[in-house]
């Protein structure tokens, strides 16, 4: 899988922001469960990107979702937090060669590792997101429900996106 050019990454960012604020923000299953699919942008950051650019892309993606979603700072904070730990999380599941350009996906990581990677990154982001959203913290059980079920829904969305990308794109070589 090839890393994205600047313009394609910008296009992906704007597309995901629009999808999030125009449609996904309105989904509230049982009044609680909302997919935050825009983090697909951050989850897919490739290993050729510098840590600084990873943070800046994530921050501005979150800020745009905030600007049009009526939540100033909420998504910017949680997306930046995820971006700080995303490179480390890739390494939890895949031993990377320093010179290898690696794009996280089921075709490069294998299904099991990719599911684990998606669950871990999404749970981290959603935990920060829902804690900030719920301040002052009151009902911890409701908070936990929101994190767990929203994480599952977001992961399903991301897995579907990965599946369609793999079906459309060229065959890739598995790392392991």
């Amino acid at each position: 899988m090839e890393p994205l050019s600047f313009m394609r990454r910008l296009g992906l960012m704007l597309g995901l922001v629009l999808l999030q604020v125009l449609i996904l923000n309105r989904i509230a299953l049982f009044g609680y469960v909302t997919p935050l699919f825009y983090i697909w942008m951050i989850v897919r950051f490739d290993s050729s990107m510098s840590r600084n650019s990873v943070l800046l892309w994530a921050f501005f993606t979150g800020l745009l979702v905030d600007l049009f979603g009526g939540t100033p700072g909420l998504n910017a904070a949680s997306a930046t937090f995820l971006a700080m730990f995303q490179p480390g999380m890739v390494k939890v599941f895949v031993p990377l060669d320093r010179h290898e350009i690696f794009v996280p996906g089921s075709s490069t990581m294998g299904n099991r590792a990719f599911w684990g990677y998606l669950l871990l990154t999404t749970a981290l982001h959603h935990t920060v997101y829902f804690i900030l959203l719920s301040i002052p913290l009151g009902d911890w059980s409701v908070l936990a429900l929101k994190v767990v079920f929203s994480t599952l829904l977001t992961v399903v969305f991301m897995y579907a996106a990965d599946y369609s990308a793999v079906k459309k794109g060229p065959k890739s070589v598995m790392v392991r």
């Binding site: 979150g62 100033p72 930046t80």
Partner: peptide
Amino acid sequence: YVFLFVLLETLSLIFLFGF
């Protein structure tokens, strides 16, 4: 990147709690 992370988080939290 650590300093940038702290800066961006601080900015976000100012937005979040400043309004």
